[in-house]
Design a protein around this nucleic acid. Structure first.
Lengths: 345, 345
DNA sequence: CCAGCGACCGTAAACGTTTACGGAACTATG
DNA sequence: CATAGTTCCGTAAACGTTTACGGTCGCTGG
């Protein structure tokens, strides 16, 4: 005898009552509930997940899909760890469990996701590293399973999304640099078709043209979003005949590599070239200090969770005024890396 | 009509046959199997996870437990992503899915794990960030659920484990530094009771005493295992009346912070103090380059998976000679950060 | 022609829950 | 006392699979 039956036998009541007691149903005597809870604690009984979710068609699990192998997203562990922690802060209130669905770099993400949802693995999903054309959102939309994306796509299907405000970053960076006299401004992009790249480059173009400038295509650098990619960008940049006087980095992780390439060549960020980047745990320890855009990953996680829950009927009433879509602002942290004024040349 | 029944109805055969066909049972006509597989593909049918695992008591899921919040483990940006990818390379061969069980920093890891196993969530588990006294291993051992730990504990219960060879690192580092004339050697430790700290400090002590030296307790630095911790260590070290001439870093992530603190004070790694650390994605971009111990995280993941599977009856025969316990070697990468000879003083 | 066998497939039970339904005991009301 | 209402609990069906068991059919060998 196992599981709920064992408990019922021990208490000499029916399994139905045990279940009701544990699930907080009203039609069970308070004294009985006490006994059941006590016995459950004592036996270490926890309802079997499979049985429960088979019956009620719900798993109490939310999946956060991420790709392993790390070269793809360019987000490091610490990024997700912090976001996860925020997400869980919200989920804990609803007895929801967060698990990370790990899609191997060997596997097609859409197929992976298709399998996961067909198996009925999770009640809801969080998608990250969204691509410009992302078949995953169509898949989930037509399956009618609640989800939220961290990042917009071109193929948005009306699902809730959160996205970092890359437009704001682009605008602020360009304005700031132009105001300081820069005319040749380089930018970096991830070289896959991540959606954020398009958003970013487009807004940079706009912002520049508002100042009567055009974005020189030869100053758009694409690379893998990691340290090595940053190093390569640095080398490529230095090899140009006519160097830019400033560069804006879209990814967190490339700054260290870029610094290395520049410093090796005796080019000092902030003195010989202006650099604006994204904040990362390492950013504080770069020298000269990096001017960068920062955000609270923990709060981002909280918002992500709330946004998802507000789209799930069972939880929506807890979050009546969570907006379905949000552009998450980033805060500019002034450092030394963009100190120079271009007219110093 | 849904699920397997729908498929069966459409093909005009029984659900039993459909199941057998999909599961590769021998007693089904080859032509029938073809039809079933084709229909399944066409309908996008995937067996419901709950139903399946309820019946066979198995989930085909392996859980990798990690703590979110990131300050705890101190693993760098891409550590887990790379390990995961290796693990999955092995699991993919057995149609096992890897999911990350995310324990919030708010929650007690043991309780979290207890819930997860009681729910019958996974067929096997991988534990990381093992503590010296880790109640999780007792829990899993008495529940008789297959698991492997990344890191030993004092309370090992005969389970398979893998651990980085911190002894080897300690020995090699001390020998190397002593051979170069260093007498005052500092080391760093994480300040929680992670097991690796004890292993490391003990072996350092031994190695030093083999050279007739003793480990000065005031040269043992404890900190959070991240950049900020490294910075703090640097400051503390510089404040000492009698500075060490060398320091060995146990964590990946603290080198950047340490460098910053040293360089701010005009103390150059490799010239004014010798530094030996652990490799990380950022390590390549430190200047002067860091002498460090490196390992293939992908291969570590593979080994971890194989070790776990070899302890699971259903898979063991695939891995007849996987050792239950392994000390994973790290390779020394020579950099400039420990170039100085102490007798230069 | 019959027994025996193998190949294939249908039937139904089982896995561990939750929950609709109904019934028993008790209380309140007239 | 009869009736209605309330409170609590037991019964059993249902969720979607897998699999033991047995049955049908066709074939083979005597």
């Amino acid at each position: 005898m196992k599981g709920i039956r064992r408990l019922a036998q021990h208490l000499d009541i029916s399994i139905g009552t045990v279940s009701r007691a544990l699930n907080g149903r009203p039609d069970v005597k308070e004294e009985t509930r006490k006994r059941v809870l006590e016995a459950a604690r004592q036996f270490g009984y926890v309802p079997n997940q499979s049985g429960r979710s088979l019956r009620q068609g719900t798993t109490n699990i939310i999946g956060f899909m991420i790709q392993t192998g790390s070269e793809i997203t360019g987000q490091g562990d610490t990024f997700f760890m912090s976001v996860f922690d925020g997400v869980q802060e919200v989920f804990a209130r609803h007895k929801l469990d967060l698990v990370a669905l790990l899609c191997s770099s060997q596997e097609d993400p859409t197929e992976y996701l298709r399998r996961a949802v067909a198996r009925g693995f999770a009640d809801g999903l969080i998608l990250s590293a969204t691509r410009r054309h992302d078949p995953r959102v169509e898949l989930l939309a037509e399956r009618n399973i609640p989800f939220v994306t961290l990042g917009r796509t071109l193929t948005d299907a009306g699902q809730p999304w959160l996205d970092l405000d890359f437009e704001g970053m682009a605008q602020a960076s360009i304005d700031r640099l132009v105001a300081r006299g820069h005319r040749r401004i380089a930018i970096t992009l991830p070289h896959n078709d991540a959606n954020l790249g398009y958003v970013f480059v487009e807004r940079c173009r706009q912002a520049l043209s508002a100042h009567g400038l055009i974005l020189d295509e030869s100053l758009i650098f694409r690379s893998t979003p990691n340290e090595a990619g940053g190093y390569q960008i640095g080398r490529d940049l230095l090899a140009l005949e006519e160097r830019p006087t400033a560069i804006v980095l879209i990814n967190e992780t490339i700054a260290t590599g870029l610094y290395r390439a520049l410093l090796e060549a005796g080019v000092r960020p902030g003195a010989d070239i202006a650099v604006i980047g994204r904040h990362s745990p390492q950013a504080n320890f770069l020298s000269p200090s990096l001017t960068c855009f920062r955000l609270s990953l923990h709060d981002l996680g909280i918002a992500l969770a709330e946004t998802l829950l507000s789209s799930m009927p069972a939880f929506a009433y807890h979050y009546p005024d969570a907006p379905p879509n949000r552009l998450w602002p980033m805060e500019l942290v002034e450092g030394e890396s963009d100190a120079l004024q271009a007219h110093q040349f």
